[in-house]
Design a binder for these strands. Structure first.
Lengths: 187, 187
DNA sequence: GTCTATAATAGGATAGAC
DNA sequence: GTCTATCCTATTATAGAC
């Protein structure tokens, strides 16, 4: 009997794939069990809070990923342009070149009472703020920086939606190339 | 007994609200019955195909609405700028100033086998094409026109997602104001 | 055309063995 | 830590009265 322990980290990674593709309500436990390779009871052993805790774990995981791989480089060394390019590389890889959706989008459905809304708002807000700081570092005023940062987030989210609806991942790749011109127009 | 017939058109309008807010999987028949004011059996009388037919009816309805109120004016009389401004007015009202989501987004989840994907791709494609024609009318080359049209759709979809995630409908209103500069930059 | 009542199934979640 | 087997509820869908 191959009682091989699947690392929780790997389970969370597979959960990400399911929730990205199907959203929260669309991801059934049967589907989750299939995609993770674990039985339902094993999932409840890892996540006693059930499906909601699974989704929360994924959100926390990408929150940590973003903080480490996206926001930290954005706030780090190098010119604003260099830091933005580093972020774009990470973002492109994270969303598989436009072939998968953003968890913020898929988990933010469900009226005003979704248990994930506060976390999502905080995470997306931190991302926008880090982008705005970059624009300020390059000389933009506070209001302009905030507005350009919001446009960058809008472009990322929008191109992911368009890529999915049009079945055309390249729309996302093209949009990423426009980000420097949006956030740092003086370069 | 108030056997008052609720017009199918009104039922579809209310269905739109439910599917926009909760997506397809997130909209249960109990919720749909509550929001439409009809009992489940009455809904099955109107839509024998069940929930899937309800969603299809809503998609068809907004397809017709878009063709009449959005695409036709885009292709109509007036300067490109005037036609775009007319579209923006309709879009702003349709999405309630950013307080509700786009059905294309909420119904396009669910891997590659969603029964709505083909309809959504066709509808969004027609919208993008109408926008591209506007840019060409104003003198843009075919490639540039198509690219700018895609950016407009990206901005609409992205700002709706950001507005929802950040609980900030005004992000959508701000984004709409940037559309003329994106599609018709020479004006 | 709408309703109440109910069937049939899929959903989330648990118990307990190994 | 993972499994099989099961529970209970919510879900989609239908039957049949008015």
């Amino acid at each position: 009997m191959p009682v091989q322990k699947v690392p929780r980290e790997e389970v969370v990674r597979r959960l990400l794939g399911v929730f990205r593709a199907h959203g929260y309500e669309g991801a059934s436990l049967a589907m989750i069990a299939e995609k993770t390779g674990l039985q339902k009871a094993s999932l409840y052993h890892l996540f006693p809070g059930g499906k909601e805790e699974m989704a929360t774990a994924v959100l926390d995981s990408i929150g940590a990923y973003m903080e480490e791989k996206v926001l930290k480089p954005l706030r780090g060394e190098g010119s604003p342009r260099e830091r933005l390019e580093a972020m774009i590389e990470k973002v492109s890889a994270f969303y598989q070149g436009g072939r998968c959706s953003c968890l913020f989008e898929t988990l933010s459905l469900g009226g005003g009472d979704s248990p994930f809304r506060a976390t999502i708002q905080q995470a997306m807000g931190a991302w926008i703020e880090a982008l705005a700081r970059l624009a300020r570092d390059q000389g933009a005023s506070g209001a302009a920086a905030r507005d350009r940062a919001s446009q960058v987030m809008t472009t990322i989210q929008g191109s992911l939606v368009v890529a999915r609806c049009m079945n055309e991942p390249h729309a996302f790749a093209r949009a990423l190339k426009s980000l420097p011109g949006i956030l740092l127009p003086d370069l």
